[in-house]
Design a protein around this nucleic acid. Structure first.
Lengths: 230, 230
DNA sequence: GCCACAACTTGACAATTGTCATGTCATCGC
DNA sequence: GCGATGACATGACAATTGTCAAGTTGTGGC
């Protein structure tokens, strides 16, 4: 990928986009760029945070290992999204591990640099808070889903988030492995399979990583319907 | 409660404790103090955030209403803890609602004040990020629990968090309603009852809001054991 | 092109959890 | 003190999900 393209993607990221031009340039000039292969570890839980990470291409999963060995996927990031903000500025260990789930290109901003820029211009603090808030919000949304929705409903919401259409039918591509989707939604791959087949009567056809939704609104109604009235 | 006691509690809060004396004084002098009755609403989901909140006494729950009407408890706060940091500084609507679950005393810091102090001293930004990170972390821990542990194991962890002992036996008080505990742990009250009885063989006796743990370590082993090997 | 492997799908079964119904117990107003 | 109410426990039943075991199907290596 061309160097300039990478910078352009980084500029559009939630973390940087609201910053003044000269701050972005300074950050970009000190950023470290790296390529990761599929399956490669980006950092490990308990490791001390030294940078904030912005995904330029590919997919990254954040996950936690329970003492039992069970893996819980916390979030999945792609192009333009950043992670590690809240941790990097506090010299505390990461609460999660990060792994490339596809080949990835990632930009790292060293945290001392961020801290010093922040002392010059508190606006950067607000930017960091902004993307941290986005994560907070998405975690809250996930908690709500896990606590208040059935498996099939969570899958329905996942599909809905892949499309930006408001009504009518559409086709979407599943962005990553079904195993990872299952993990992200807090279920086993077998349950995901069953959830997909339970969505057939609502007008969802799955073929490989390709999904056809007959009627977005019908799917949305299903996702928001009370589980007891089905 | 005496005014000075309130201020002392506020000073010890995660949000304020790492700030320089004069900043704390400035914040405290502009803070709004209020008492809430049990069941009273502090703010509603979708409402615009105007302040950061610090609990001085009592218990507050943050929860989300799913479109289906189901309620998902996101977190429960008590003395010294703060909430709403990430939202207040960005003029965005709250992603959750807040309600007093017991009689409460809460201090509110208007967000414009925080913003202006932050421009003077970026250290405040770091403090806010610190408490935001704590929430982020606790949400991540909750997600892990929900995804990777059984109901009884989540209850075991909840009990373990109530005690600061490392080994041996102990007695703890359940800090709030079993209904709320159930919600906080993502289950129905009935399931909580069953989870409690499933903990009997591990040395846990529940009587009203009083719990006896025969051996902390045994309970910890149970909480961390693989669910398949039971 | 063939083999091995991993990613699925499906079925049968067990365990867990939600739902509904019923019963007990403490608290509160009167 | 008495009845009403809400919190909680428990049993029966249904629905959901995890687990285990097959079987299918791409994909990549050779």
């Amino acid at each position: 990928m061309a160097h300039e393209t990478q910078k352009a993607i980084a500029r559009q990221s939630l973390l940087l986009k609201s910053l003044p031009e000269h701050q972005i340039d300074k950050l970009l000039s000190h950023a470290i760029w790296r390529r990761y292969d599929r399956g490669e570890t980006i950092f490990l839980q308990e490791e001390e945070a030294k940078a904030v990470h912005v995904v330029l291409a590919g997919w990254v999963k954040l996950f936690r290992m329970a003492p039992t060995g069970a893996e819980a996927v916390v979030s999945v990031f792609t192009r333009g999204e950043s992670f590690g903000e809240a941790v990097a500025l506090r010299n505390v260990p990461y609460p999660v591990s990060a792994e490339a789930v596809s080949a990835c290109e990632i930009m790292h901003f060293p945290s001392p640099l961020l801290l010093s820029l922040m002392r010059e211009d508190p606006e950067i603090g607000v930017s960091i808070l902004a993307s941290t808030f986005t994560h907070l919000h998405s975690l809250v949304a996930q908690l709500e889903q896990l606590k208040a929705q059935t498996g099939a409903q969570r899958v329905a919401e996942f599909l809905l988030n892949l499309s930006d259409k408001v009504s009518g039918g559409c086709e979407v591509e599943l962005p990553y492995d079904k195993m990872l989707i299952a993990g992200r939604l807090g279920m086993k791959p077998e349950s995901l399979s069953r959830a997909f087949s339970r969505l057939k009567p609502v007008g969802v056809k799955i073929n490989r990583n390709h999904a056809e939704i007959a009627d977005i609104q019908r799917l949305r109604d299903y996702a928001e319907s009370d589980s007891s009235e089905k």
